[in-house]
Design a protein around this nucleic acid. Sequence first.
DNA 1: CCCTCGACATTGTCAACCTT
DNA 2: AAGGTTGACAATGTCGAGGG
Length: 295
Amino acid sequence: MDLRHLQTFKVIAEAGSFVQAAERLQYAQSTLTLQIQQLEAELGIELFDRRRRKIQLTAAGHTLLIHTQHILNQVEQMQQDLSDLAAGESGSLRVGMIEPIARLYLIDVMHAFRERYPRIRLTIEILSTIRTHEQLTANQIDLGISTPPPANVGLIFEPILTETPVLLLPKNHSLQQQDEILLSDLCAECLLLTESPCAYRTAIEQAFMARGLPLAIGIEIGSLEIIKQAVQQGVGVAIMPKIATYHIPDDTVVRHVKDLNLHMPLGLITREVPLTQSKAVQAFSSLFKQAAADA
DNA sequence: CCCTCGACATTGTCAACCTT
DNA sequence: AAGGTTGACAATGTCGAGGG
């Protein structure tokens, strides 16, 4: 069944005349006759009573008209939905990001995004760096925000800010009394670090190795918030991104490690070959870059 | 006012060929 | 070998003229 035949049928039914319908549709009248004949042949029943001067719908015609109006409305809605999807005005967007970035910028970005794109269903996942990269590669999220992914995994990294590591100590820790803290001072400490293999963690390990120092990791913890609480409770000391220390627990202090001068980029990660929703991804990325620039 | 017919235009299908 | 392009042919759509 041809959609155009249904469209023609609907216009004839509304106009009550083949001639007037042909004028509306910009077809020759004979075209309408043929289309209706084909429709009637296909359905095996007459749709118009043509015996009188003015045509009238048969009972079958009335029934088909109800269904036709429903079908054409559905088609119109489908076209509108697909058009919105293509323009990035509807659909869904899945974003994965690491915890510190989410804490700093996410609320503002979500607010702005919701205001500008109310018809896009936004899903935010707070992930570790490695999970962010994995889920992007597996097409489980559309956009990631974290440290750079490994090379040659089909991901593109766009830096938006640079992060430096700092040391989080309990307030009463002996290192707190020192004028300057060095990496060598941490060798005897119970060091709390994020899980491996995260780019941040790898860079810290390399800094220790470069100075010929042993890196004695006390505990690996997947959540920076739990690490901070562990420091507060005196479990150990932690090296973490400065961005993660804007809100620290009571009785903890942030100190700079003199010979730990790392500059780790944080940024937007997308697939080299975007699958869907590239416009929504662009919109969210743009808002996030703006939020980072304003901070 | 609607239907039929013949001519022409457009669209779809398929096989052969080309490119990667 | 898979996928894309091209050309020939068939099917379908459209039109105008003319008839019932």
